[in-house]
Design a protein around this nucleic acid. Structure first.
Length: 258
DNA sequence: AAATTATACAACCGCCGCATT
DNA sequence: CAATGCGGCGGTTGTATAATT
């Protein structure tokens, strides 16, 4: 079993141990955690070292109470992603997955249980938005995947299209990598537009607005685990494309024969 | 003031996915 | 293809501190 050596220390870390670990990371950098205990001279398992660094010693960690906007974002992302704390924390600069998980379990679960009359709809289990929206399998057919390109050159309106029976927001970058998300039962897909974009995506979107490429759609939320890519023949006249190939998670879908 | 209970969060554990051999 | 190791994740527990009785 991992980390079960009898001589390995457990429990709270001492200042001395913290110092040794910090010096080790500063010298060798993050990674190669299995080497850290010997390198640092610590009688700890590598997992304990890694956890101590990622959840506590890392200087990038943000301390203090969660701000209102952070709490709101946690709730919204949890509604979308469920208990995928690392993904949620990834959208909260300086916050660790452990922090987010602890906060949610100690602060928000209590409210969730006790607040059916909560005015905040995201804390009220009786509202639809309280539900966790889980990714659904895609079923595509030729007829349901007619057009995904063009439509708005200035990115100032929503670009959606109909895939199968769902309205799914789609985005594509210059490499024809297309991302999409599912709407909730109220057909709302907009709320996390900006929240779900990282700096690279924002930069890309702004760059795209200045130099329109017809194979690019208005940027939409990205589900990081459900990404598809396509190759298309583009009709330059009307900016509408004909789908040639569609890949979902690396698997080719024969969209014209379904 | 002491005992008890509740809370916050640090830390551990087992499992899983991926890369390498 | 199977075995192995590494790194990471989420669930859960442990413990220090605060609040309450």
């Amino acid at each position: 079993m991992e980390g079960s050596s009898l001589s390995v220390r457990k429990g709270a870390w001492t200042e001395k141990e913290d110092t040794l670990l910090k010096e080790c990371i500063e010298k060798y950098g993050e990674g190669k955690w299995h080497k850290v205990p010997s390198r640092a001279g610590l009688n700890r398992c590598w997992k304990s070292c890694r956890l101590r660094w990622t959840n506590y010693l890392n200087p990038n960690i943000k301390r203090g109470a969660f701000a209102d906007d952070e709490v709101d974002l946690i709730i919204r992302l949890h509604n979308l992603l469920g208990n995928r704390w690392s993904l949620i924390a990834g959208r909260l600069p300086g916050r660790t997955a452990n922090d987010v998980k602890n906060y949610f379990n100690t602060q928000l679960v209590k409210k969730k249980v006790a607040s059916s009359s909560d005015p905040n709809p995201h804390l009220n289990p009786s509202t639809p938005s309280f539900r966790v929206i889980k990714p659904r399998p895609l079923i595509l057919s030729k007829n349901s995947f007619p057009v995904i390109l063009g439509e708005d050159k200035k990115f100032n309106t929503t670009t959606t299209t109909t895939l199968a029976s769902n309205n799914i927001s789609v985005s594509a970058n210059s490499d024809n990598n297309i991302s999409y998300c599912f709407p909730d039962e109220n057909n709302e897909v907009m709320w996390w537009d900006n929240l779900m974009m990282n700096e690279k995506e924002v930069d890309y979107l702004q760059d795209s607005m200045n130099n329109f490429n017809p194979s690019v759609l208005g940027d939409r939320p990205i589900n990081e685990e459900l990404e598809c890519s396509t190759t298309c023949n583009l009709d330059e006249e009307d900016n509408y494309g004909n789908l040639d190939e569609l890949y979902l998670d690396g698997e080719l879908w024969d969209v014209f024969n379904q």
